[in-house]
Design a protein around this nucleic acid. Sequence first.
DNA 1: TAGATTGTTAATCGATTAACAATC
DNA 2: TAGATTGTTAATCGATTAACAATC
Lengths: 216, 216
Amino acid sequence: MKKQHISDAVVRRLPRYYRYLDELHSRGVVRISSSVLGKRMGVTASQIRQDLSCFGEFGQQGYGYNIMELRAEIGHILGVDEPRRLIIIGAGHLGHALLQNFDFAQGGFRLDTAFDVSEALIGTEINGVEIHSMDELEDYCARNHPAVAVLTVPKAAAQDTAARLVALGVRGLWNFTNVELAVDESVFVENVHFADSLLTLSYRISKNANPEKRWP
Amino acid sequence: MKKQHISDAVVRRLPRYYRYLDELHSRGVVRISSSVLGKRMGVTASQIRQDLSCFGEFGQQGYGYNIMELRAEIGHILGVDEPRRLIIIGAGHLGHALLQNFDFAQGGFRLDTAFDVSEALIGTEINGVEIHSMDELEDYCARNHPAVAVLTVPKAAAQDTAARLVALGVRGLWNFTNVELAVDESVFVENVHFADSLLTLSYRISKNANPEKRWP
DNA sequence: TAGATTGTTAATCGATTAACAATC
DNA sequence: TAGATTGTTAATCGATTAACAATC
């Protein structure tokens, strides 16, 4: 039975299901039951079935799930088969790393242009992606209507750049700036807060300090 | 009343409190009440008080919280005042970006050495951090006992490298490889799964597709 | 058919919010 | 003192797990 509202907890688990199914698929496994998948992923079979039931009925009694099918269904739910444009704002070290390492196409995103203010970078190409001047942003957006912008600019420029992108019709911001962006609620912001992530690790290590192993 | 078990939900909110308090502190604000802080952060006052009460009593009736004190208390809870060593494994684009941009000292981590297999990088220095050969990892760990290792190696090397680090006594792994690491449960793994993060954004955009704004 | 496994409903568990006495 | 705000207890809400009839 399809649910109308999907909780954030469920949404955040979907990419992980997708990843496991993708791996099983590429290893040639054809079918899997919720209990086997659950054991492998370290979650309960109930949770998997409950999560999937939010979106439809993808399994078969007595059989389980066809991996290829389920993978495609989750991909569809996540929107990977619905290609959209993405741009990178800021081709510094982090933007550069994403341009070099990250497979945007796998997530269903088309990336052909990044933007930066550095004269040294403008006009160059990284991994097949052209670096344009920030002055061309308005023009590019008017022509290509990118759905998502990746924010890898310095902290100080984050809020202004975000506002500019929102005004240009961007629907989502993938925010690496460690700044809390104030934007219209119709625009989705996905934060990647490195500092927060490392601090939780710091916390867990501190709390479970093993006296024998406590070195600086 | 101090709690013995702290839920993950609470732990993940602490860095955000810390960040806000840090900013208020640097702007010279002296005190704040849970309701004002809550309004600013977009959470309930109840939640803030409930969260803090897991660790002690840091406020004062009729007054609220002293920002400098509370900031220091949360910093202490997170372990930022307890310096520990951290190493970076893999000085490729992403490792490089972290070396250049990320302030490890602010999280209480001392970073002096990164490791890589590339002959071109070994012996060089990035932002004051020396790049050593992976061959020197055992020796370095025996001498310096790093608490945390940042994993910015290629996917294929992830699991083996993790196992090697765990054997060398590392207590936590900050994992950027998008691989699920199988390690002893006494070692903490904090995953930064870029792909998962972007897919949740993809999902939210797909579901709330605004027909007027639906461009590729 | 018999065994396996689903989707779903019910039960449990935990997290968030509300309320309020205590008190600065 | 009176007003404000805490820490904590109680109430609510939501998410996870368990159970099971349906059925492949």
